[in-house]
Amino acid sequence: MIINAKEAFNPDTIERLVQRAQQGEQAAFEQLYQQCYRRVFGLCLRLLADQAHAEDATQEVFVQLWHKIAQFQGQSKFTTWLHSVTSNVAISYLRKQKNWLQKVVSLEDSGMEQAEIMQCQSLNGLDKLILRLPERARLVFVLHAVEGYRHEEVAGMLNMAVGSSKSQFHRARKLLQEWYDNE
């Protein structure tokens, strides 16, 4: 599929599509999907570090979006709202994956293996490193450094102390630097 960059980044177009989707127009929602799915998938992949799970979570985001779009009041930019919905869906997806098995074996998920990362095409240099991070460090780094949430907000989203969010962020930076320097 060829994406018209000018069209894709035209906020007026997104705004109009949102309004039409709010009226229940599914064709407009599909166009909205075409304009935004890479953003959503990118964030899901960075948070979940798993191609298949990120694809499933992206679908879940858009299904929820269809049901919630009428609630969007336009007080913030649509993309800001979209990122917040996506973050919440991806985090709750991750929690759903953590079921009884994690209770038996309380091990933190390590990031993606390098071989898996090599299979994911179209990843930029920073993403290749982010996906290797262990789960908590990765979540905090993505939400704070990439998405711009404050540590207080990240702590609330991930149900951890603010101090833990800060220490996980430093852990992430340290690992990223180590890997970057050794590349």
Partner: peptide, 19 residues
């Protein structure tokens, strides 16, 4: 947009079915 990764399958069909 050019820095974002791509899914490996078409996701819209499933979304359309679900909604």
């Amino acid at each position: 947009q050019d820095q974002l990764p791509e899914p490996q399958r078409d996701l819209w069909q499933g979304i359309e079915n679900a909604i």
